[in-house]
Structures are given as C-alpha cells and as structure tokens.
Amino acid sequence: MSYPRILVIDDEENFLGLLSKVLGKEGYEVRTTTDGNQALRWHEEEPFDLVFVDIRMRPIDGFSILDRVKNLEPGTKVVMLSTYPGDQTRAMAFLKGAVEYLVKPIDIDVLKETVREHLLPP
C-alpha cells in the first residue's frame, strides 16, 4: 500500500521546504514545486491525493491550477493558500471545488490538522 501523496505548489522555496519537512515527518509522500506547469505534468502522470496551491502564482495563477487539477482528476482534494485574504477569493475557491482555504502565515498545527482531515492516515 502506497502512502497518501501530497503536492505543494508555491513560489517560495523555503515555504515548500517547510511543508515538505513537516508533512514528510507525518509520513506522507510530499512533492513540491514552484512551477505550475511542472505540477500539472506530475499530476497527469500520477494524480496526487491532496494538492496545496498558492493563489498568487505566475505564470499560471492558483485558480487556473485548481481548475486543471480538477479536470485531470475530479477526486483530488485541493487546498488554496492565500496571502491576501478576501471574501471574494475565499468564495471563488470553494465554488471551484477547493476543500480548504488557508491564510498565510499558516500555523503548522493547523496545517497538520487540515491534512489529517482530508487524507487517510499514512
């Protein structure tokens, strides 16, 4: 049996490093990238169970990544990450099928809790 797979897409390397370390220690298989296109290629090859994606991304923004991830694999759970929270972006995230909307900076206990809620224990 394989471990639940998590993908994190964010343009901050250190943030990716933090999530990789924290979630890796929890027993999940974690892949991270700053490149949205790369992320989509990986997801196409082998879908992830849970995807964290920052809304403010370039060249493909987080909402476009959310749409394409859901198109490729409708069952994938997506958590949107926002630096500039707003009710409109929050509403749009849920409307497009995200399971969570987390505001940065994210407390790692909240992060772990979110993962536990949406994935089976590794």
Binding site: N14, V22, T83, K104, I108
Partner: peptide, 17 residues
C-alpha cells in the same frame, strides 16, 4: 505587513518544527 508575514510564517513554522 503581508510581505513580512510570509517569511515570518516560514521562520515560525521551522522553529515550531
């Protein structure tokens, strides 16, 4: 404040870890 919050969040996260 937003720009500072991100790196600060990372520092806090690593420290917590």
């Amino acid at each position: 404040a937003h720009e500072f919050n991100n790196p600060l969040g990372i520092v806090i996260g690593f420290a917590q870890d």
